[in-house]
Design a protein around this nucleic acid. Structure first.
Length: 208
DNA sequence: GTATTCTGCGTCACAGTGAA
DNA sequence: TTCACTGTGACGCAGAATAC
C-alpha cells in the first residue's frame, strides 16, 4: 500500500511568495517555491494529496475579542500572531497584512477541493486546515525549548527525527512548509490537538 | 487587604537591508 | 543565495503601581 500523501504550505507576502512541500511517507515528492494558489492546488490534485496544512489564518477576527484558537494556544504559552479583523487589515497602510490576504486566496482556491477542517474527530476525504510552524515546534520540543531565535536548526531537527531529509529544503520557508505537511500527516493519523471553534476557525497541532 | 489599571516583556509573522 | 538583524503590529501574561 502506498503511503498517504500530504502537503504543507508556507504563505508569504507578495515578494516572498508561497512555498509548497508534498510528503509521501517520509519522502519529499514535490517542492514548489513562489507558487500561486492555483499552481499549488494543481500540484496537490495531481499528486493525490489527502490533507494540506496551511501556515496562515483560515478566518479573520470577528468582533472585539481575538480568535478563540489563538487565545487557547496562548494559554498553553504558544504565542501566535494576532489575526486582526479583515477591515483592520484592509485599513493598514503598511502592507503588513499582505501575507494574510495571500493566505485568504489560498483557502479560497483550495476550498472547493479540500474542505476546511471543522473540528470533527473523523476525516472523510480531503481536508485543509490551519497550522503554524512555531506551534508544531512547541508540540515536539515543548514550549520551554522551542525558540523563534533557534527556529532554523530546531525545525530541521524535528523533520530529521521524523525521518524526513531536509537537504533539499534550502530556505526556512521550505522547512516551515514541510512542518505543515508533517502536521497534515498527524491529522490523518488522528494524533493532533485542535484549538478554536467553528466561527473563529480551528488551529491543528500535532499531539504527542 | 483587595481589586483594578498600567507597564514591560516575550511571542509570532512580515519586509527590508547588508554581510558572507 | 542564505543568513542575521532591525523595525512593525497586536496580543497575553506577570508584576508593579494605584485606588478604594
Amino acid at each position: 500500500m502506498r503511503p498517504t500523501t500530504v502537503a504543507g504550505i508556507d504563505v508569504g507576502g507578495d515578494r516572498k511568495g508561497n512555498h509548497l512541500v508534498v510528503l509521501r511517507g517520509t519522502e519529499i515528492v514535490s517542492h514548489l517555491g513562489s507558487a500561486t494558489p492555483e499552481q499549488m492546488l494543481e500540484r496537490c490534485r495531481a499528486l493525490e494529496v489527502a490533507a494540506v496544512g496551511i501556515d496562515a489564518p483560515c478566518r479573520w477576527r470577528t468582533g472585539a475579542a481575538g480568535r478563540l484558537a489563538e487565545k487557547a494556544l496562548a494559554r498553553q504559552r504558544i504565542f501566535s500572531f494576532a489575526t486582526p479583523a479583515r477591515e483592520t487589515a484592509i485599513a493598514s497602510k503598511s502592507g503588513f497584512y499582505g501575507w494574510m490576504f495571500n493566505g485568504e486566496r489560498v483557502y479560497d482556491a483550495f476550498g472547493a477541493h479540500f474542505p476546511l477542517f471543522s473540528g470533527g474527530e473523523k476525516i472523510n476525504g480531503r481536508v485543509c486546515f490551519e497550522t503554524f510552524p512555531h506551534a508544531i515546534t512547541c508540540a515536539f520540543l515543548g514550549t520551554d525549548v522551542a525558540s523563534a531565535k533557534q527556529k532554523g536548526p530546531q525545525r530541521r531537527a524535528i523533520l530529521e527525527r521524523e525521518g524526513i531529509a531536509t537537504a533539499s529544503l534550502t530556505s526556512i520557508d521550505d522547512v516551515d512548509a514541510a512542518l505543515c505537511a508533517l502536521a497534515a500527516r498527524y491529522l490523518l493519523e488522528g494524533r493532533v490537538d485542535t484549538y478554536g471553534d467553528e466561527p473563529g476557525g480551528f488551529i491543528v497541532v500535532p499531539g504527542l
